[in-house]
């Protein structure tokens, strides 16, 4: 019975009037199940079940119009030989590392800079939330017009500042930079908003104490702000890493993965394997590799994160 009493009932010895009045044990179990059950069943039905349902196919060379044959681990072996896949992995890694690093540095720096009483602070924050909710596909599509080589606004600005025209979408290097910039536009505000929210929640008395002890501005940052902000920064890092690995919308709408395969990120590559070349078995194997990479990363960071959520 002690197991079934919720935290609402303060004692575990059954003296509490509430569970007794409700008929104890089975009744509470049923209540719990009614509250948690629907969501749990829902998640099982729409994430675990489809994966199991499609599971056998990753073992088969499943292709429409071809006879199914069981290829065992062949699809997994192919992952190691496919140079296009390796290109996609490399592009994704470059994208993930550069966007996450730049967003964290820029966003946190801005938050530190603006962490003071400013007129219109709330308006500023409201404006910073706009990019977070702007439809990514729409941003990619709008990007085509903004990165336009002749007379597009970005190149016009560069030329006005005395620079040369940048071949944004036609040069492999610059195309990836263009995709990265869209991501920076969209997600630097996220780092900024979370950082500034956390900064404003820091205990002021610690700063006063440190100032009384004669700490200078940089010391305050190095020995007070940074250690206190570290859990938040870890959390932002994890959330951004996870999201960055999912990138799909902007590359497919802005560059279609091109020129060549210069911006063909992992999700886009897998999407094409599945729905352009209808190689479902191989695409499923690719999906599992990505899942493995993300899970590995999350579990490496998870120790830190658990501390934050608990």
């Amino acid at each position: 019975m002690a197991e079934t009493t919720g935290p609402l009932q303060p004692t575990q010895d059954g003296t509490d009037a509430v569970p007794a009045a409700k008929g104890v044990g089975t009744r509470t179990d049923r209540t719990k199940a009614i509250f948690l059950g629907p969501a749990a069943i829902w998640v099982l039905a729409f994430t675990i079940f489809p994966l199991l349902y499609a599971g056998p196919r990753k073992m088969a060379s499943f292709r429409y119009g071809k006879i199914n044959q069981f290829v065992g681990l062949g699809n997994f072996a192919r992952l190691f030989r496919d140079s296009n896949l390796h290109t996609a992995l490399r592009v994704t890694l470059v994208f993930v590392v550069s966007t996450v690093a730049l967003e964290m540095i820029l966003g946190f720096a801005l938050a530190l800079l603006l962490n003071r009483e400013i007129r219109g602070k709330n308006t500023l924050r409201a404006i910073m939330t706009l990019p977070l909710f702007a439809t990514p596909v729409a941003m990619g599509y709008l990007g085509i017009t903004m990165y336009y080589e002749q007379n597009g606004p970005i190149n016009s600005l560069i030329r006005a500042l005395g620079g040369d025209i940048v071949p944004w979408l036609s040069n492999p290097f610059w195309a990836l930079v263009a995709v990265i910039i869209v991501d920076l536009w969209q997600w630097t505000p996220f780092v900024f908003l979370v950082s500034i929210a956390a900064l404003q929640g820091l205990p002021l008395d610690l700063y006063e104490a440190a100032q009384v002890d004669g700490a200078s501005g940089f010391d305050l940052f190095r020995y007070v702000t940074l250690p206190l902000m570290l859990p938040t920064l870890w959390l932002i890092l994890l959330l951004r890493l996870v999201e960055a690995f999912k990138v799909f919308d902007v590359p497919i709408s802005l560059t279609l993965g091109g020129p060549g395969r210069a911006t063909e990120v992992y999700s886009l590559f897998t999407y094409r394997t599945a729905l352009r070349f209808f190689n479902h078995g191989y695409a499923a194997a690719q999906g599992f590799l990505l899942l493995f990479i993300v899970m590995l990363m999350v579990s490496l960071l998870f120790g830190r994160i658990r501390e934050i959520y608990e």
Binding site: L36, A39, A40, V43, T47, F49, P50, L51, Y53, A54, R57, V242, F245, K246, F248, Y266, S267, T270, Y271, A274, L275, H280, A283, A284, G287, F288, L290, L291, V294, M295, V298, Y309, E310
Partner: peptide
């Protein structure tokens, strides 16, 4: 409770592209 919470959280960690074919078939 903690495990359940993590389990619900994990839905946002999974890369959606993994689900493209399973959902299509389903």
């Amino acid at each position: 409770n903690g495990t359940l919470t993590t389990w619900f959280l994990s839905q946002r960690v999974l890369p959606p592209v993994v689900f493209v074919i399973p959902f299509f078939l389903l």
